[in-house]
Design a protein around this nucleic acid. Sequence first.
RNA 1: GGGGAGGUAUCCAAGAGGUCAAAGGAUGCUGACUGUAAAUCAGACGUGCGCCGCACUUCGUAGGUUCGACUCCUACCCUCCCCA
Length: 431
Amino acid sequence: MSGFLTLLKNRGLLASQTHEHLDELVPIFEQVAPPEHMKTAYVGFDPTADSLTIGNFIQVLGLKRWQMAGHRPIALVGGGTGLIGDPSGKTQERQLLTKETVEKNVEGIRELLGRLLDFDEKRPNRAYLLNNADWLTKITFVDFLRDVGKYFTVPYMLAKESVKSRLETGISFTEFSYMLLQAYDFKYLFENYNCEFQFGATDQFGNITAGIEFIRKTLEKQAYGFAQPLILDANGVKIGKSQSITIWLSEHKTTVYKFYQYWINTQDADVERFLFYFTFLSENEIKEIIAKHQQNPEQRYGQKILAEEVTDMVHGKSKRTLAENASHILFGGDPTQAKVETFQTLASEIPFVQMDKQLLHEGLKVSDICVSLGITTSKGEAQRAIEQGSIYLKNQRVIDKFMKVTANDLLEGGYLLFRKGTKQYYLAQFI
RNA sequence: GGGGAGGUAUCCAAGAGGUCAAAGGAUGCUGACUGUAAAUCAGACGUGCGCCGCACUUCGUAGGUUCGACUCCUACCCUCCCCA
């Protein structure tokens, strides 16, 4: 019988593990594992921002998968470690965050994780959300050096990749000590929550093993860990960085529409892998989706499923539907059929201007509206653009460069949709 | 401190008294093609005007010479190079 690690491995989500037999230790159960078999695992989230990126999302999903396999997940927000700064994967010393910022960030992440995992107290393997500030800020420096520092040799710490890679460029004592704090976290959770497992991204592996070592030395008990891979797209680019824009999980940082679009824009070469990584669909379901996708790749069937699944998970179905409708309008749909809510969604995604309805009485020239909306910088340019056939009103090409818009042209809610070229949209509302 | 070169449109870069809104590239924009891709071909590209035309503004800044200045003169500002 295969366990949780096999599940991850089959989906391409296992990069490394601390022990060979981990798979047997964590069998997969329906919903809830019997108490004697229930295992607890934690993942730490660094509060460097008030939200998480889709890079962190892999770890959140890891916790979710863990919970779905009947075990208990703990999401640990680093309110304490965030004050120090994790050197893992960083090439430079980081600016310290203020305590206020860290607290604000912790709250943002807390809110997000609260939606993504099941914290229902009736569920025996309910998730926990903890903040290491609760214990890390209480320990005194001298105690820390005696109780934690004594168990780590400097050569051991220097050998860790997170430190080693920084020896040339410099690393402060503060960041150097980071792994001790994370080790302390693990021990704390091990003792207080019976948490035997920790996982994270591959760059966390060094910190994870430090914790296991610490638990073995101080408690003479065995803890375990594994790492999920860093996800790259087919071009070898880290996911969630489209043209240097980070894709966040919170709506206030990345709108639902942009989030949805990010997944829709997945390359064909990545669709199958991403379905394995970011959804809970079974292998058979994914194979079917891919088979269907390949019959008409231009339909983006696979991307649509991916975008729907992921957006539903993060933002909920109703918001996903709005984003979907907005996408539909912007990519070939008929705007005359669109509802007011769709335009409201669009208004925050594309250049949007409100104008006075009175202007339409005499009829308003398209070329004038082009300037008001910022489609073109001058009327002359607008007229040339129309001559070249690049201006569209309600997805219909404007042919007459002196064409006037009247109140009869308005769509639901007084909206009017313009387009320049193939995909630059502009929205006006006449009120 | 001494000597030299130069500042032109989004960027690079021609122009050396009138035919200059200013060659040629590149980027960006648009059209065709296409799967919300790349490549390719084509077009417009200072501003205004119901636009095969006319007017206005622009070649570092401010003055001047001239019928006429991106081009000549003066001063100033800035950049780069060489020598000390």
